[in-house]
Amino acid sequence: MDAVRLLPFLGVMLWMVPLLWPVPEATTPTAPVMPMSVALRYVFGVWLLLILASWALWRRTRDVASAEAPDPTVEPR
């Protein structure tokens, strides 16, 4: 159940990584840029990972509707 609670925070962290990517600026055209294909793969990869994790957690915890449950320690990937 703890993993269910923590998963959104993992999502926030992973999806805020793009904030660190270089943004092209007019002044320095030679600066490194992030190709769109890589960005696409990253964003959708994280998305898929989160969906799978969420699905796996649901499989494990669906019987525990509201109360506390044994902690699924492993986060499936």
């Binding site: 793009p18 904030l19 990517w21 943004v23 190709p35 769109m36 294909s37």
Partner: peptide, 24 residues
């Protein structure tokens, strides 16, 4: 398709960080 994407006008990451976070 991926090659075409990289070659296009929007082939680079150019999202401002503030917009990325605020819109999310």
């Amino acid at each position: 398709t991926l090659a075409r994407i990289d070659a296009s006008d929007i082939g680079q990451w150019e999202v401002q960080g503030s917009r990325w976070a605020a819109l999310t």
